[in-house]
Design a protein around this nucleic acid. Structure first.
Lengths: 335, 335
DNA sequence: CTGAAAGCGCTTACAG
DNA sequence: CTGAAAGCGCTTACAG
């Protein structure tokens, strides 16, 4: 592999000069620069990024941790992240959060990225690591996900999930629904818990009871929701509406309701969460709570870049962004 | 930041010994090891990954380039990749292919990853780079995507897209359809071109004409397909079936057909491609060509790891994996 | 089993 | 504007 030395030799200059022309920081004489440029061309030299990273102590990468690569909701968030990253001169790398604790620790400790955007819950093992002071040199912002109490000091940007779920539930109630079910995500998803809390609060405020059998785990997946919906439909006093903690589950619910020969929204109303791109295309088009995905991504990336450049002074106040109930055709008035 | 020197000092050994206990290659005396372990514990030392990468000339990362982070099709591929990667001791990083040529070049040239899995078309600028011999030290495998003629030497694993599209088209023909439309992807997507070629070949073999107005670009998106379908439906002799180059577009087609008051499959039949998880849940459940996503991911990762460990001897024969026409409920017999 | 030393390929004060 | 030199934090032959 050709190194900076080869270029220097060919150009008849020192390696310092080669380095300088590449990073054009200090002024390099125009002619010298040209000679170096030619030598680079001729040798096909390109700087060893590994050496640069090491030497500079930074990589220009921002790492984004997300729950799953194939989740359409994150398309928007990622778009927002990328647009600011490009503008600020960062590259963005992604990894899935289904990593073991060692991987997560190494992510935090290794300086392989200059900053971290967490779009997923911090794994339990990671919490401990995060709390040790010496790791606080890595700028981190949490986005979309609600912040775990154990890592309250982390900055975050997300919608008010409690309020959003309240609003969706109230919408159902205002349409005459009283038996409203909630399909939640997994236990580990705080965001889901917030949405559940909002649902319960709205029910309580309306003096409506919530039966235990109405609140089921759907694992955030289509299949999980299919199963949950099935048991909901078998209830003797079955719910007239189902609020789902994400759109995948709402789509699963729609599917299962239809399979049973029932109709949405005439027999059962459904509301989802997130407004992924499929939600408007399913039948009937799904009423759901939209998150401003792109805006979340932009804000998260903006804060990270700021923290990297200013040397980490992230405030820990959560930054709330507005949600919006998108009314389509899966909710009907209950007579 | 605490470095290996601090640990060595505290443990009363040389940095070489610290390094050795960490990487436990050579045998280190048990008691020495214990002393070092304690020193590491006390100092909170963790090796500087940037230095390690630089020194070792490798990162233990495999980079996966995909067209879009939020594309559900890749969930399966990624799952396959991750499972083999974990087994082989690699970490997997992802990035989007919407990068400019500089980024792509730097990806190839910088030794930031030990191998590259391309799940997307190589950007035009990248082709030139790839063809320069000196970059062939980075193991690369293309997966899912068809291989561009310009980079024929790259190994790949994918389904036979031509044959798959032929089969889907023949299925339509065997159901009495004669006016069959095709919604393609973008010009840059070779895979889409292959599918179009398969469609045309099947039509030709059946002596069925293909009108120019029947083949439209759908940009691989729901909205793109909505528009394409709309113009298809306005045709005086409108097609009785639409083959779409991916499921997103098929879902868009379903949606638009329904919006017009027509029914799938009674008025128009639809077939998609990929079998993403939403396809079984939309209405009617989508007939589509499934790719063995997880298997593709496994095979790609397996070949990459092999190439990394053996020192790059990738054969360039494409590895074909089987596709499968999944018959659900969007195709009806044409009377 | 362990240490002294070289060196990976850069960047960056420091002189001149 | 340019060069000589130090040094980033490791790993790894080479001796002993």
């Amino acid at each position: 592999m050709v190194s900076i030395k080869d270029v220097a030799k060919l150009a008849g200059v020192s390696i310092a000069t080669v380095s300088r022309t590449i990073n054009n920081k200090d002024r390099v004489n125009k002619e010298t620069r040209e000679r170096v440029r030619q030598a680079i061309e001729k040798t096909g030299f390109s700087p060893n990024t590994l050496a640069q990273n090491f030497r500079r102590g930074r990589t220009n990468f921002v790492m984004v941790v997300l729950p799953s690569i194939g989740d359409p909701f994150f398309a928007g968030v990622v778009k927002g992240i990328q647009s600011i990253a490009q503008q600020k001169g960062y590259n963005v790398l992604f990894c899935e959060s289904k990593m073991n604790s060692d991987e997560f620790t190494s992510l935090l400790v290794s300086r392989q990225a200059d900053g971290l955007i967490l779009l997923a819950t911090v794994p339990p093992s990671g919490i401990e690591v995060l709390n040790r002071e010496r790791h606080r040199t890595l700028p981190i912002v949490v986005a979309c996900e609600a912040i775990q109490p154990e890592v309250r000091h982390l900055p975050s940007v997300h919608i008010d999930n409690v309020a959003a779920a309240k609003e969706a539930t109230r919408f159902l109630i205002s349409h005459g629904h009283e038996r409203i079910a909630f399909i939640s995500g997994t236990n580990t998803s705080l965001l889901t818990k917030d949405r559940e809390a909002g649902y319960r609060a709205a029910m309580k405020a309306a003096k409506l009871p919530v039966q235990d059998s109405w609140v089921l785990e759907g694992k955030l997946t289509i299949e999980g929701a299919v199963k949950a919906t099935r048991s909901l439909l078998h209830l003797s006093m079955r719910p007239t509406a189902i609020l789902c903690a994400n759109d995948d589950m709402a789509i699963g619910a729609l599917h299962e309701i239809r399979s049973t020969g029932l109709t949405v929204p005439d027999d059962i109303s459904v509301i989802g969460f997130d407004d992924i791109r499929y939600s408007q295309a399913v039948f009937p088009p799904l009423t759901t709570v939209r998150q401003p995905a792109e805006e979340i991504g932009e804000k998260a990336m903006y804060r990270i870049s700021h923290a990297i450049e200013e040397g980490i002074t992230l405030t820990s106040e959560p930054e709330l962004v507005p949600h919006e109930l998108v009314i389509r055709r899966t909710v009907a008035r209950r007579n």
